[in-house]
């Protein structure tokens, strides 16, 4: 029962969030503001994690491919495919669910308990669309940027560490990452990450929006927002992979 209640209320909120904006110019500015906070503000953490994971995958797969039957350029293939297929779209999304999700839920939750949302409503503003829609739009629009950025940096990190430590040569790595490359995989990754971005923005926003009580409940909403969006990301990862790749 509880699940249906939350689903119903979630969809009603999202529908309200995509109602007609009161004033277009204000919304446009809000979207840029959110892109700056949620998107640009995440570049740093995405860069660091991607470079390191690319490097780790390179070293690990070189270590595992010591069998003479496996060509050493397979390291490049492994880094490329793990970054493009899973790491950049899904794992980065999980990390962002923690970073962005908790900030969205606590921001909106605090606005709820300090009556700022009521103040918006009383002014005749659709608070759901004013607060939530720009966050969703910013996340979804910015997600391809983050994903492609992460793919490049992961593959680049693998290259630098692989060549530096000598587990793979310059030529083999480049050969590996171009070997049998399927552009469709990137499309698949972008579709996935778009869906995840929607979840990352909307689920914590939902939990924040329906906070009631005090600061304790804001913390609780923030935790719930992160946990539920992570679980949903993993669920949709499975569903979309089955639909798009199988």
């Amino acid at each position: 029962m509880n699940v249906f209640f939350h689903f119903g209320r979630y969809f009603i909120l999202i529908r309200r969030a995509f109602g007609k904006p009161e004033k277009f110019s204000v919304y446009r500015n809000r979207i840029f503001e959110e892109m700056n906070i949620l998107g640009i503000g995440s570049l740093g953490i995405v860069a660091i994690i991607s470079v390191f994971i690319g490097a780790v995958i390179t070293i690990q797969s070189a270590f595992n491919f010591e069998n003479p039957l496996v060509p050493i350029y397979a390291v490049g293939v492994a880094v490329r495919d793990s970054m493009i297929l899973e790491f950049s779209p899904a794992i980065i999304s999980l990390i962002l669910a923690g970073k962005i999700g908790s900030s969205i839920a606590s921001e909106i939750g605090t606005m709820r308990i300090t009556e700022q949302i009521d103040a918006l409503e009383i002014m005749g503003i659709n608070s759901a669309s004013y607060l939530i829609q720009p966050k969703i739009v910013a996340c979804v629009v910015f997600s391809p940027v983050l994903v492609i950025f992460s793919m490049f940096l992961g593959i680049f990190g693998g290259y630098v560490f692989g060549v530096m430590t000598g587990v793979v040569t310059n030529y083999e790595y480049i050969y590996g990452i171009t070997y049998n490359f399927r552009p469709y995989n990137v499309v698949y990754a972008l579709i996935k990450s778009g869906v995840f971005a929607f979840i990352i923005a909307s689920v914590p926003a939902y939990h924040g929006y329906y906070t009631s009580g005090g600061s304790l409940e804001v913390g609780r909403s923030s935790t719930k927002g992160v946990v539920y969006s992570s679980v949903l990301i993993l669920t949709f990862d499975l569903i979309l992979t089955q639909l798009l790749l199988a």
Partner: peptide, 10 residues
Amino acid sequence: MLFQGGALFD
């Protein structure tokens, strides 16, 4: 409307 707690946008 003036809310009892002010409700300013922080």
